[in-house]
Design a protein around this nucleic acid. Structure first.
Lengths: 178, 178
DNA sequence: ACAGCTTGGTTCAAGTTTGAAACAAACCTA
DNA sequence: TAGGTTTGTTTCAAACTTGAACCAAGCTGT
């Protein structure tokens, strides 16, 4: 079949998206690097741990919610561990498992860093969006993300006998947002 | 001033955005790596050159439209040059300058790779958006991008005597989209 | 109880990105 | 026109990412 190229509208949207996402991530990385000494992803690791029950999470679960590979997470946690912000513990239920635990120092760093980060996200993104646009953005991104995960999961599910997975419960938590 | 945290809606939107952009870039990178042997950024370099008059662009201009640092572009072009897809020439007007020129082989690779790429972008993004959402996405991203550049440029402009810059003309071109 | 498959994590090398120099050519300005 | 600043680009080391092994521990069927 002959390729269906992007329409002018799609093309404009695509280019705008690329530009915006590149600029936004760069800006946020720079801010976090300066004020927190770490890239955005590492901050997200801390933020996610702080939201988790007991401030700890299994590596795979964390990687999954962050949408990154396990090896990338291993690197991040290793670095954060070296800096004393996270500690590793082995999972008692599953001897293969490894838990990343947020240390007190990690909490402190997170609390010190969060305001500047949120301020930045606000200034660069939300202050420039109307409430409707916030809703639109969420809807668009949720759909896209679902589609992208759905692929893997449905493929995986189709290849599996058991379609539902049991996972350690997450949820709740009121802490320095991300 | 006490930090204004993100509202629940903003928080949801932010998380969804992070997830979507991470998954999307990963998927696109994987596709392009497999079928074209290069990451998305490198493809974009080729695509942008192919749109340019004479299939050539100054390094700085290219970096600017791609929203990346000059040193990042230097690396990309060096690699593409090693692979024979791009060639460097020195700018005659400005002996400091360097031009990146798309080679015939570069054109060929681009033409061979573009359909799969566009197909992917379509499947992962546009096929999941209504026409209105495409418009919304463009508007949102354009605004954000402008804001993010505006900062630098207005800061730079404020620090300059001459507010407008002369740049080699760009525009036009009908080629394997990006 | 054991062979074989799956899952959770890490390791390692190769590739890419970052940011701060280093350079050279162009552009003032006195 | 010499000296000082700015602009265009590259270089270099350190940091980060990727993907393909690899290893150990759980699970399965026999």
């Amino acid at each position: 079949m002959t390729t269906r190229w992007l329409s002018p509208e799609e093309q404009r949207a695509w280019r705008a998206y690329i530009a915006a996402s590149r600029l936004l991530e760069d800006a946020i990385d720079r801010q976090l690097q300066q004020e927190g000494g770490m890239p955005h992803l590492f901050y997200s690791v801390l933020a996610n741990l702080s939201d988790a029950p007991d401030r700890q999470l299994r590596m795979t679960d964390l990687a999954e919610t962050l949408k990154i590979t396990r090896s990338r997470l291993t690197y991040a946690v290793t670095r954060l561990e070296r800096d004393g912000l996270v500690r590793r513990e082995n999972c008692r239920w599953d001897k293969r498992g490894s838990l990343a635990v947020l240390t007190d120092e990690g909490v402190a760093v997170l609390e010190r860093t969060a305001p500047g980060h949120v301020e930045t996200v606000r200034a660069l993104l939300f202050d420039r969006l109307t409430p409707e646009q916030v809703g639109q953005l969420e809807e668009i991104c949720t759909g896209i993300a679902q589609g992208l995960q759905g692929e893997n999961e449905s493929a995986a599910a189709a290849a599996e006998d058991v379609p539902w997975r049991r996972r350690s419960g997450s949820c709740s938590g009121s802490s320095p947002a991300e």
